[in-house]
Write a protein that binds this DNA or RNA. Structure first.
Lengths: 246, 246
DNA sequence: CGTTTCAATATGTATATACATAATCGCTAT
DNA sequence: ATAGCGATTATGTATATACATATTGAAACG
């Protein structure tokens, strides 16, 4: 059947993954708003030409991930975004994206090695004036931009980062694999998207965004400062000021 | 069969939940150290007297949660704790615990309403000298203490908290359900357990612990300050300074 | 008219079965 | 001895089936 063929092209491979992926995409894109009733298992069974167990596996995982709510006799419904709990789940973006059943893609937008400016030193809490590496990256969930990353790496602390292009691997995972860390500080807040962020995330300027800034130290040395920006309408990363969770 | 009966008594209800719960308990308690090979599916099938699909469901979920790693032909193995990613997953403790397949339990240790001391004002970044509510709680995963919570609530900002006993509901969920928040600040670090924490978490004094402190503001007003302390040997909340994740 | 009961329905869990896939072990042939 | 090959093994995915359970809606009844 054609659906299965397209699944093999795009999805994670298995059919239930493909179903999961299709549905999360609909929810995250807003096509299916909160409260919307998802097709019944027997309908999806017909649509994907598979058994109910396969559909059930996909829907159960969606329920477990908090994207949908299942009610006996009534069906399955798109949940309203959870706020507080969700906000702090953002960390390893690849894992977060893949947990939603969406294909993850990473793209490096810019890379610049330079002597640290005053601003750089303020962001990194650097005392000396060594070189830094400035990076700008995008993380995708399926077709949609998921997070914008703006990062400074202290090249005095992480010399080998100066030789890395970060074209195929995101700086987060790269650093985790190499640099011991002893402390991290986070700041989480909401902003209105400026033009640059709006372009990057494919949203309207002024739209609410969630910003997570993280500074990491390793044995008293500042290692990196990173600022992740997420569009507020992405499910797990909501900049709702009034938490809706019960 | 007797195993099924005991499952009905303790576990979440379904058999695969029970299997999942049993195995996570073994891993989190340290009985099965990282690298340990857990029984093959067909062995668990015999042990629990159920089909392979049921065992498979439990093991797949454990793999997805990152507790174990599955290798074809070789078996399933307890994974080393992941560090970075895991550290930031801690937030809604109930959800975290239940994701591991363990029964969650909450216990309030102490509750004290008082005029804010100088220390309270520093912690909350309070300017005025209004009343605060000080709470001390414990969160359990199965039989084991999972997290120790020490919290201050600004009763000027959240008047109704003064009437709540917090015997049956943890302050976190309670606040999320009532108080709009606009900003949160986190600090994550490792400490050695003092006597008090060691007693609470049932670990040795001096053992490494992960501490997460969070301050929350709502429209410029400090709402609450909370300090979670986790034993480092709990899997998802590891105070490893040298991230082992690849 | 209100309440109770019952059947229909969608999800929740479990089974036996089947075949695919990847990794390892051991045998064989060079 | 060793490189290659095939058999074995454990997991990965999917199917058809069965029964449990919760909830809804409608029919039956007081």
């Amino acid at each position: 059947m054609s659906l299965i063929e397209t699944a093999a092209v795009e999805g994670g491979g298995s059919l239930h993954q493909r179903i999961l992926s299709d549905i999360s995409e609909k929810i995250l894109s807003g096509a299916w708003a909160p409260g919307h009733r998802i097709p019944f298992e027997h309908e999806l069974t017909a649509e994907y030409n598979c058994s109910r167990m396969t559909v059930n596996k996909a829907l159960s995982q969606l329920a477990k991930a908090g994207l949908i709510e299942r009610r006996r006799r009534s069906g399955s419904f798109v949940r309203r975004p959870q706020s507080q709990a969700a906000v702090l789940e953002i960390h390893d973006i690849r894992i977060e994206v893949e947990a939603l059943g969406l294909p993850y893609r990473y793209e490096r937008l810019a890379r610049l090695k330079r002597r640290s400016s005053a601003e750089d030193r303020a962001l990194l809490e650097l005392t000396g004036a060594g070189p830094v590496l400035a990076l700008e990256c995008l993380h995708f969930a399926g077709q949609r931009p998921f997070a914008h990353e703006q990062r400074l790496i202290n090249l005095t602390a992480v010399v080998e980062a100066g030789e890395e292009e970060f074209l195929d691997i995101a700086p987060g995972p790269w650093l985790i694999g190499r640099v011991p860390w002893s402390e991290a500080e986070h700041r989480i807040r909401a902003i209105a998207a400026d033009q640059h962020i709006a372009d990057a995330l494919d949203i309207e300027p002024g739209a609410p965004c969630l910003v997570v800034e993280r500074r990491t130290w390793s044995a008293e040395h500042p290692v990196t400062q990173v600022r992740f920006t997420y569009a507020a309408d992405s499910h797990t990363l909501v900049a709702r000021f009034r938490p809706s969770q019960g």
